[in-house]
Amino acid sequence: MLRFGVVVFPGSNCDHDCFYAIKQFVSKDVEFIWHKSREIHEFDCIVIPGGFSYGDYLRTGAIARFSPVIGQIREFAESGKLVIGICNGFQILLECGLLPGAMLRNTSLRFICKYIYLKTVNSDTPFTSSMEQGRVIRIPIAHGEGNYYIDPDGLAELKRNNQIVFQYCDANGNISDNTNPNGSVENIAGICNKAGNVLGMMPHPERCCDPRLGSSDGLAVFQSILKSLTVSQ
């Protein structure tokens, strides 16, 4: 069975949600990984969940990157294994340099929690492989700093390497300023690294796996992970 590990930092608060969604709908083999842990090599996929690690004091994700587990995750990622950072997890991946760019406060300067639409603009990653190119999913966001920033050179690089995975859009998949909830450059909601095995995304797929909660579109992300891991094994 495929093993998922959910990292827990002091202040993580979507750790239980990720754990529950994976256990319920994806794989029975899921464990928490305490941030001081140095034993993560036996996992197949590492999930860095949302929350406010270290209170997000100083900057979102800034302090978490000095936890012992981050060095392990770096090696894990370099060996080609799958790492997904959701919300605060994405912010941590940016801070520790596994993904390029940085997060700024939402342009509204307010925390935003609501369902939005997301377009899958790169279905050629292990995290989107079970979705068709261009598929629109309905998924919640919940963040105060999800305004993705990257300088023009960096953006060009992202595009050249096809690293943009998700963009904010409307129900029909149109991408415009009106469908940008937080001011992100080019409506970017999720990116991967050059190798494609590390994904960061602001929306919360773990919050929309159970249809009782209003949408099960988030399952597609986890099913893609499952599919690509099964294929590679």
Binding site: N13, C14, H16, D17, Y20, A21, G50, R110, F111, I112, C113, K114, P140, A142, H204, E206, R207, D210, R212, L213, G214
Partner: peptide
Amino acid sequence: VYEQYDHMVITNTVVA
């Protein structure tokens, strides 16, 4: 007001 609150975390919210 309520969009400024995280009303979904813990993934139990059936009626938001």
